[in-house]
Structures are given as C-alpha cells and as structure tokens.
C-alpha cells in the first residue's frame, strides 16, 4: 500500500498530461473498437449459427428441413429406435476407446525412447517417422492401409476388414499425436526426480510407475482424449479400411446425409454438441479452480506460512 502511494505521489505531476493522452487515444480507438466488435460478431455467427439452427431444427415437428412444423422431440425417440444408428454409435465408441488406449501405450513408449535414451543416433529420423502420419494426407494413409490389409489377408488370411482393421489404422494415426503431447511434457520434466527415486532405492521399473508416470499423467490423459476424438470422427481412413459389417458413426451419418437431409441427424448432432459442451465446461471449471488454488498455495508458501 505504502509503495503504491509513493508511486502515485511521484507520478502525480504527470497525471494531467497522461489523462490528455489517454483521452485522445480513446477517441482515436473508437472506430477500430466498433470494427472489432463487428468482426467478432460476424466470426462467432459464422461459427455458431449453423450449430444453433441445427439444434433448433432438431426439435422441428415437420420432416421437411426447411419448414417449421412446431416443437417436437419425436426425432430423438426415432433416433434411439434406429438400430443401424445405435449400432454405429456403439461401434465407434468401442473402436475409439480401444484405439485411444493403444495409441497412449505406443505413443508414451515412443516419447520415452525419444526423450530418455541419451545419444540415440537415429533420434530425429525416428521422430520424423513417428509423427509423419500427422502430416500425411488421410487418403494416402487410408489407401496404403487398405493395400497392406488386402495383401496380408491374401498371404496369411488375417486381418479380415472390420473393426480390427479400423482399430489398427486409427492407432497408427493417433499414436503420432499422443507422442507429440507426451514428448513435450517429458522434455520439461525435471529428470532429477527420477534420479532421486533411484537414489532412494527404487529400481528403474518402480521409478517409472511411481514417479515418471504420475508426473506425465496429465499429458497422457490429454493424449488419450485427443486420440479418442480423432478416432471418433475420422471418416476418410475408416471408409478405406472398414468392412461390410463395421459401420462407424461418421460413415452412417455421411451416407444418410447423401440420401437426403434427415432430422434424426439433427437430434444426434444436438446430443453430441450437448455432451461436448458439458465436458468442455467442466474441464474449464476444474482448471480455473486448480489454477486459483495453486496461486493461493504459492502465495502462502512465499509468505512462509
């Protein structure tokens, strides 16, 4: 308090001048400010208006997409009664869950190799190879996967195209993302905590599970979520490697939209939007609270309490 008062006192003679400049600056900034608001509104509208209209039309009583036929939730009931759609949701969930889990294991191992093995000769080459699926066009990845699976099944009779092939294809792509996320976390991790663990008598395996893993867990979780989301809505690669009996949600939605707009899809989209926003909101809330607590803790620690 005392310090701020002193500072005020020091700057007091200049306040007139300061006020003048800030006032004139305000004036000159009025127009850009208006423009900023306009652009922001346009941008937000561009992003969210389609989603809002989609949500509104999911409650449309009429089958026609362009005509408002009164409020109704019948499309939701129809959606849940649609066996093909429900099967696709289940298939997608299973594949995404398995793909995310597998890619977390592979991605974490790859990140560990890249960061922890000192003077690893082919490090940059290996890093390039493991992250290549991120930048390769999906069409090429999908096509090459398809060729591989066809050749393999001709040679050894495995795999038959279906959920397994989709799963393998998804893991190759999403593992790259997990590697990037976990690698950056591992890089900033203080290596001495692992040394400290060994110094205190824990072997390398114990050290990994009790010290390293808990420290990189946030990165692994976000890697898993990222992989899950990517696998959930992939259409291109999945279409290449899917078999006749394995229709994922994006495939079903895409093919039904091609047959004509269907209000059922609106209902499905509304549910997905609702779930995603709920998750995002809680994640945000948790983060804000955690950060606030961390700041408070640090402040207390600094004061020596």
């Amino acid at each position: 308090m005392a310090e701020s008062k002193i500072k005020e006192g020091v700057t007091a003679p200049d306040t007139n001048e300061l006020n003048l400049t800030s006032a004139s600056r305000k004036k000159s900034f009025n127009l850009p400010k208006l423009l900023r608001v306009v652009f922001l509104t346009i941008g937000l509208l561009f992003l969210y208006a389609p989603i809002v209209s989609l949500i509104i039309y999911s409650f449309n009583g009429s089958k026609m997409m362009t005509v408002w036929g009164g409020f109704s939730v019948k499309w939701y009931f129809e959606l849940f009664a649609d066996k093909q759609m429900m099967d696709a949701v289940l298939t997608s969930l299973i594949i995404s869950f398995c793909a995310a889990s597998m890619s977390v294991i592979i991605g974490t191992l790859a990140a560990l190799v890249l960061v922890r093995i000192s003077n690893f000769k082919g490090e940059s080459l290996f890093a390039l190879f493991i992250t290549a699926p991120m930048v390769l066009p999906e069409v090429i990845v999908g096509l090459s996967m398809l060729l591989l699976f066809v050749t393999l099944s001709q040679l050894i009779g495995w795999p038959q195209r279906g959920m397994v092939t989709i799963w393998i294809a998804m893991v190759t792509v999403t593992a790259a993302y997990v590697t990037v996320v976990v690698r950056s976390r591992l890089k900033e991790l203080d290596y001495s905590i692992e040394e400290a663990s060994q110094d205190l008598g824990a072997g390398p395996v114990k050290t990994f599970f009790f010290i390293t893993l808990p420290s990189i867990l946030p990165a692994i979780v976000s890697g898993w979520l990222l992989a899950f989301t990517l696998a959930m809505d992939d259409l291109v690669i999945t279409s290449f490697v899917a078999g006749p009996g394995s229709q994922t949600l994006p495939m079903v939605v895409f093919s039904s939209v091609r047959r004509g707009l269907n209000p059922e899809i609106n209902a499905l989209a509304t549910i997905i939007v609702f779930i995603v926003s709920l998750c995002t909101f809680f994640y945000w809330l948790m983060r804000v609270r955690k950060e606030k607590r961390l700041r408070q803790d640090m402040k207390l620690a600094m004061q020596g309490k």
């Binding site: 203080d190 001495s192 905590i193 040394e195 400290a196 663990s197 824990a202 072997g203």
Partner: peptide, 28 residues
C-alpha cells in the same frame, strides 16, 4: 546401481516428488 548403494543425495533442485506430500516424500 544407485538404488542399491547406501548413499543418498540431496539434489540441487531438491527433486521433491511433486505429486506427493512432504510426509510421502520422506517415506518413499
């Protein structure tokens, strides 16, 4: 290997395990 030596080290950065309490750190 370090985990079999009757020698303990205090690190420059202290290397406390961030996910453990003071008590758990000492008990590790």
């Amino acid at each position: 290997p370090p985990y079999k030596r009757p020698v303990n080290m205090m690190f420059q950065s202290y290397a406390l395990f961030p996910h453990m309490t003071v008590e758990q750190n000492i008990a590790f």
